[in-house]
Every structure is written in C-alpha cells, then in structure tokens.
Nucleic acid binder design. Structure first.
Lengths: 155, 155
DNA sequence: CCTATTTTTGCAATTGAGTTGCATTTATGG
DNA sequence: CCATAAATGCAACTCAATTGCAAAAATAGG
C-alpha cells in the first residue's frame, strides 16, 4: 500500500500518452501535481528540484505539450502570464477560477451548479463557459486578528 | 435635434473628467464608441482617422487613462492582448463576455440574471464575478448556406 | 547490448505587447 | 499673451513567450 508519489503519478500519466518519457516532462508534471494552485512558468521553474537544470524553453514546451495532451490546463490571467495546473485537479462542466487581484494567484474553484444561460447573438456558437471570481486571496487579504505570518505578495 | 456624433460624445465625456481635452483622447475614445466590440491597441490605432498621427505609446496611455476614468473597460483575452471598449456599453452587475476562440474577438454580452454563488475558501474575499463564454463568433463560424462574404480571421 | 531513427532538448536569437525616462509640446487658467 | 502643469512623442527597454537549428536523448529493431 505504498502511496503513489507525484513523481510516480507523473511518470504514469506521461507513459499513457505514448510519447517519450523524459526527465523534463516528469519533473514539470510532478511540480504541477504537487501544487494546489495554478503555477506560472517561473513558479514551475523555481519549484523544480535543485540542480534539475531544465532549460527555460523546455519548460515552456513541456507545459504546452502537457496542455495538448490534456494533462494540464492553461489559464490566462489579468497579468498576461500563463498559469498551468495539472489536469487531475480538473473538473468537467463549467469551469470556475479564482484570481487574486493583488498577487495574481489563480486557483480552481468547485464547479458551479447553476450554469447561467447566456443569450448569444445570432450565428455565435458556444463552446465553453468560464467563470472567474476576482477578489483577494487569504494571503493578501486583511489579516483581522489572526496574523498569519507570511503574506508574500508577488507583484 | 442633431444626433450627437461619437466625436461629440467623446469630447463631452472627457470634459466631464476635468482633465485636459486633447486630440488623442477624443479620437481614441470616439473610436471605442464607434465599435460594438472590444478593440485591441492595434485595432484602435488602425481605426484612427487617416493622418491623425497619434503615437503608439500615447494610445496605450490614453487607453489606460480612459480605463482609470471609468470611460473604458479593459479586458484580458486568451491571446494576452488587452482589449478595450467604451464604458457606455457597460452594464453593472456581473459582467459577461464572449471570446471567439478563432479570431480572439471579445464582446460584451447581456448581463446574466442568475449570478451563480461560488463557494470561496476561507479567508478569500470576492470582489467581482466575470463570466466568459468561449466559442466561435458569427464571422468565424461555419457558414451554413448563407455565405456572408467576409470572415476575416485575425490570427 | 548496439545502432538507427525519431523525438526532445538546449541555446541563441527573435517577436511583440506593453512600459519607462525624458525632452518637447500643448491645453488651460490667469 | 504668458506661465505652468499636464500630455505627447520618441527611443530605448522589459519581459513573457516563440522559433530555428544543432546536439542530445529515448525507444524500436536487430
């Protein structure tokens, strides 16, 4: 009953795509799997095991590839920076994200039940609905009393 | 009962801010007012009257300024390009956008009635909800029968 | 195990939206 | 008309992301 580590999970998922199993792919995917929120390219880079020495461009390409394979999900934030999260965290149906207007962090929210019907102009075809809640995350918000000692802003 | 032109409307709105009434501001705002959809910086630039000769940077700055003044609204698209539309088109309440996955065009949709309640994690504060419908716009969609003769894609 | 073949990587250079510093010009108040 | 604060124009810059191409893996087949 050994728990599967993110690394194992990553390796497994990548094998299933039929493409080559490479170190950068495994490492990047396992970084995504370990995070509960969507990560920027830089965040992924800095969370790679020390000395992994994976090229910047390779990270971009792996991230892109993971998205194509459906193993990751790509989110455009207000700061024009892509963020990625592992598809394991994905919900189907209408997708909801939270975006912090202070630090820019993005995370997936529970799927919404009441999918609001939107009226599209004639000739328009709907493919997906995305709901983004903007606000302030716990780290950036006003600390009333509790004083959690971190609050690292990213801007 | 002479109809107010976009130019007049633009001039009026800008006067009301109390700031200087300048040619670039009037021209840019009137371009936004004339468009029913959100425009990128480049679209604004190319729609300025021939020979207006307004600097690229000035357009950025005017667009930014209009947003600060509440005269325009800034939207981040999947293609990491800002789009702006005149605030006259704005609705209050939960905001809905349509984004074409083909040409990237963004436009405002009628406000949604059923604001879906989303459950945020503890410590998170909600400021705004934005609903984005992704799909294919009339110009990019399959032309079944009608054959409208334009369909200019932008990618 | 070794080699052929195809993918991936790494590196360097490039793109393109958006920004900044600073000198010059312009709108407006007196 | 003049002073002056505010905008503009210009050039250079930032920074995420992309591209071309040669070098380096990863699998398939022997």
């Amino acid at each position: 009953m050994s728990k599967t580590t993110p690394l194992d999970a990553a390796e497994q998922s990548i094998r299933l795509t039929g493409a080559k199993l490479t170190r950068p792919r495994v490492l990047v995917l396992s970084v995504l799997l370990k995070s509960e929120r969507a990560l920027t390219h830089h965040e992924v880079e800095s969370r790679l095991p020390a000395g992994s020495d994976v090229n910047r461009v390779t990270i971009y390409r792996v991230l892109e590839w993971l998205t194509e394979q459906g193993l990751a999900h790509k989110i455009a934030g207000e700061d024009r920076v892509w963020r990625f999260n592992a598809a394991a965290h994905q919900h189907t149906g209408p997708h909801a994200h939270f975006e912090c207007s202070d630090c820019g962090q993005v995370l997936c929210l529970e799927p919404v039940q009441a999918k609001p019907a939107v009226r599209l102009p004639a000739g328009f075809r709907q493919q997906a609905v995305e709901l983004t809640v903007k606000g302030v995350c716990a780290d950036c918000g006003p600390v009333h009393g509790k004083s959690r000692g971190h609050g690292r802003h990213q801007h």
